[in-house]
């Protein structure tokens, strides 16, 4: 059953392309992480070297070095795991909270529904990035506060989605039948509602992962996320911005890496969405 599902998932072009791109990035980053002689935070006198300049340690600086003489490829590869990890944490936190609130709001209804959903409306009515900036700067700029800020901002999307799904699932006779059998509401939500919400939820979460990465890089870019000397794409671009005339590769390379990562995740997310939409699936 699962193998079959994976097989038909791979038949969708976007998923195949996305997955291939993602795997290339993953393998590259992993290889660099393990094999590179350079340390991501170790400064040298080889400042602002062009890509492919030979270094003393045997490897050439494939993507050049930054203003403090650190190898950009090594830093960018470290940042891949940092940004991806942060993105996953954000999606997990906001997804779990949003899913829970949405299912409760949809299932219980009444005043609880109104309170939860109006709160979500307030959150969603403020532009996401502005709100994230406000929260992060109130809490103080560091990595964990940025994660928290973006998580809070992302909750409403999941809450709305899972509430809507719950409302329609609730109408199914098997939910009434479970109630008739004497199951508690909590148990019905876990056993009968959640499994039907999850597939759509996971699709949304995949699409949101790339958003979370972009938001985090954005916050880091304006100094509210990761701090020096952490290797992080947004932060590297922010520092490199000043050197764009002398060393174009310094701000560009992290940007290209981020672009490719987000692209690959979006391709996969779109593909999964197509997979779940039977009308589109027929067209291939």
């Amino acid at each position: 059953m699962t193998a079959k599902a994976i097989h038909s998932l791979l038949e969708i072009k976007r998923i195949r392309y996305g997955l291939t791109l993602f795997n290339i990035l993953l393998v590259t980053s992993l290889a660099v992480l393990l094999l590179s002689p350079f340390k991501p935070t170790e400064t040298t006198y080889d400042t602002l070297k062009e890509p492919l300049t030979q270094s003393e340690k045997g490897w050439s600086y494939v993507l050049g070095t930054d203003s403090l003489g650190r190898d950009i490829l090594t830093r960018v590869s470290h940042a891949f795991f940092l940004d991806l990890g942060v993105g996953l944490i954000i999606v997990c936190i906001s997804g779990a909270i949003g899913l829970m609130l949405g299912i409760i709001a949809g299932y219980v209804g009444g005043i609880i529904d109104s309170v939860i959903m109006r709160t979500m409306d307030i959150l969603i009515s403020i532009p996401g990035f502005i709100l994230a900036i406000a929260i992060a700067s109130t809490l103080g700029g560091n990595l964990w506060n940025a994660i928290l800020a973006i998580s809070i901002v992302s909750i409403p999307i999941y809450a709305r989605l899972s509430r809507g799904l719950t409302l329609s699932i609730k109408e199914n006779l098997f939910v009434t039948a479970a109630r008739e059998a004497g199951l508690s509401n909590f148990r019905i939500m876990i056993r009968h509602v959640l499994p039907h919400v999850l597939p759509v939820f996971i699709t949304q979460a995949t699409l949101e992962l790339s958003n979370a990465i972009l938001y985090f890089a954005g916050l880091s870019f304006i100094g509210l996320g990761a701090q020096e000397p952490t290797p992080e794409w947004g932060l590297m671009m922010s520092v490199g911005r000043k050197y764009i005339r002398e060393a174009w590769w310094f701000p560009t390379m992290p940007g290209v890496f981020m672009f490719l990562t987000v692209l690959s995740i979006n391709l996969m997310g779109d593909g999964i969405r197509d997979y779940l939409d039977p009308k589109k699936r027929l067209r291939g």
């Binding site: 006779l173 098997f174 039948a177 008739e180 059998a181 009968h192």
Partner: peptide, 13 residues
Amino acid sequence: RLVFQDPYSALNP
């Protein structure tokens, strides 16, 4: 106990 009318949707798929 109650037996429902619609056996197609009374069981969680």
